[in-house]
Design a protein around this nucleic acid. Structure first.
Lengths: 185, 185
DNA sequence: GTCTATATCAAGATAGAC
DNA sequence: GTCTATCTTGATATAGAC
């Protein structure tokens, strides 16, 4: 039996998946502790509060997306269309292969509208997302057009994730990907 | 001083605006009672539980949208493009002129994904929404195309509402309306 | 129909033993 | 680092007086 059951990184990953599935307010510290195989009391050894934890979860999501997804937009060794496809496929894996849809969109609608705490991180994530798409679109379109196409794509994805959740099918999101990719044809 | 301070309809309207702004889980019965000018105890005279109340709120939203917005799609005295414009303007008033965005989308992401209770109503609302758009698109496009355009429009609206909320500007939603309307040009 | 008072429970959070 | 025990608060909900 090890002295240490878990660590911050592991907890953040577990918390991410619980928050994504159940939402912020509908997840209790007790839920999180259980999901991590800890007692509630032990949980506070790692995070001072639910708010602090969610803040770190969102920061982790931000780092991961920047590092593993949005960075693809700058891989100029790939043709623009291939870059777009690669990035969308990666994004799809992040958004599709897990229960609960998109933590960024979920949290935006649940918390950000009335609460300032997480707003900056959420905005920054969407800004990076938009910017990554814009970079690729600019290989084919002028800046203004690229910017609008990028914004449109992100909004379409979020709408599609919502529908995919509600109707329990990936089809809406897949279609949204195809539509975005077709703009690079 | 009147014996009766309020009534079910009034409470539903107030609850709608509180739920839209603060979300379902983040709204307490106490919040709702206060917003209605009632004591918590009095509130239960009208609704047995928060869940029942939210159910009725969503049903009311559904009725209102059917009656006041989606019905416009069938006003064949108007030219298709004018019908579309009229419907979108009305929808814009419903979605824009109030704090908290779209209660249908908010509730879908917050509650419907993990909870079956409100899912049927939310689905029915989105189905009617999609269908209203489809009816108008079919004046110009074949059925399959109309269906896809309608789905796309709804998803785009929801994405745009999310952005409008986060960035505190109506522009995203306005742009989405323009894009949809332009498909009827 | 509205009020005050209260029961019950779960949530966030802390203290201190091991 | 983890546990149990506990504090405090706020939430849902009910009872009964007016």
């Amino acid at each position: 039996m090890p002295l240490t059951k878990t660590n911050k990184e592991e907890i953040i990953q577990t918390a991410l998946s619980v928050f994504r599935k159940n939402g912020y307010y509908n997840t209790s510290m007790s839920d999180l502790a259980t999901a991590c195989g800890l007692q509630k009391g032990s949980f506070y050894h790692y995070f001072a509060s639910k708010e602090v934890l969610m803040g770190e979860v969102l920061k982790t999501v931000q780092s991961y997306l920047d590092y593993a997804v949005f960075s693809i937009a700058k891989q100029t060794d790939l043709a623009p269309r291939d870059r777009m496809e690669k990035m969308l496929l990666k994004l799809g894996k992040v958004l599709l292969s897990q229960e609960g849809g998109c933590i960024v969109g979920n949290t935006t609608l649940e918390v950000a509208a009335q609460n300032v705490i997480f707003k900056d991180t959420l905005k920054a994530i969407f800004d990076s997302w938009k910017n990554a798409l814009k970079i690729i679109f600019m290989e084919k379109y002028p800046e203004g057009t690229s910017n609008r196409l990028a914004e449109q794509s992100v909004m379409e994805f979020e709408g599609a994730v919502m529908f995919s959740q509600l109707y329990q099918t990936d089809q809406y999101l897949k279609d949204a990907f195809v539509r975005t990719l077709s703009k690079m044809k």
